[in-house]
């Protein structure tokens, strides 16, 4: 009976969505919208070659702060739910020699790649989130290879807190200096150069460190259970 009503519900929703889709494709041809204005204005106002980065950190910087906060909330809640690991629980057994050596070998390269992607987020596709995810993977792969040497949660939570604070402080600095929270600082510079787009690379660094430490902490904690 419940299966039957579930199927009916899904079919009804499907019909509704198809009607919406038809109207979106055939009738609504959107011209303009704020996207095209931002495409025009972003190069002069923010000065980052990657316009998605301008949207993410300048026009919608508060969303990014909120998103970092959601990640932090989830990490805190997971810490609350899973609790402290008791020291005498058994670890998974070590992986073989090849896997361990490969993990150690990969580590510096992944750190380098992550740092590169974070620092070039304002001029190439990439940025704090993507780079942060790579950094997290760099720290998590060795844990998978040898579970007995766990992540140092103290360090990761320190970086987490400080990076989040740094993001807010940059925003507050702009509030004091320019009158607007998270306003771009230090001018725009040459579009496409590494040192351009004002405070965007700094914000991305904070985002990258926070996402990296947070994801690494999350993965490690889930793996420790």
């Amino acid at each position: 009976m419940t299966v039957f009503s579930g199927v009916i519900f899904t079919i009804g929703l499907g019909v509704l969505l198809i009607a919406v889709m038809k109207s979106l494709i055939l009738e609504q041809v959107l011209t303009g919208g704020i996207g095209s204005i931002i495409l025009e204005q972003a190069p002069t106002e923010v000065g980052s070659a990657n316009i998605v980065s301008s949207v993410l950190l300048a026009y919608r910087g508060l969303d990014t702060l909120g998103e970092l906060t959601v990640l932090f909330v989830a990490a805190t809640a997971i810490g609350l739910v899973l609790g402290q690991r008791s020291p005498d629980t058994k670890h998974d057994s070590e992986a073989g020699f090849i896997l361990r050596s490969a993990a150690d070998l990969l580590f510096p390269f992944m750190i380098m790649l992550g740092a590169y992607i974070i620092l070039h987020g304002h001029i190439t596709p990439g940025g704090g989130f993507q780079g942060g995810a790579i950094l997290a993977a760099a720290f998590f792969i060795p844990i998978l290879a040898s579970p007995a040497s766990p992540l140092n949660h103290k360090v990761s939570s320190l970086i987490e807190g400080l990076a989040g604070t740094a993001f807010i402080l940059i925003g507050l600095f702009a509030l004091v200096g320019k009158g607007y929270f998270l306003a771009p600082l230090f001018g725009t510079g040459d579009i496409g150069a590494l040192f351009s787009a004002g405070s965007l690379p700094l914000l991305y660094l904070a985002v990258g460190l926070k996402v990296g430490s947070e994801l690494a902490g999350l993965l490690a904690r889930l793996q420790e259970v």
Binding site: I34, S36, L39, R60, D63, E67, F129, V211, L222
Partner: peptide
């Protein structure tokens, strides 16, 4: 349009956070 790209980036990270909490 760059805006949906930025929105999706945000939505993905939020989704990951919720899924991690769900699994825990």
């Amino acid at each position: 349009d760059p805006i949906p790209h930025a929105l999706v980036l945000t939505a993905i990270v939020i989704g990951v956070a919720v899924q991690a909490l769900a699994l825990a």
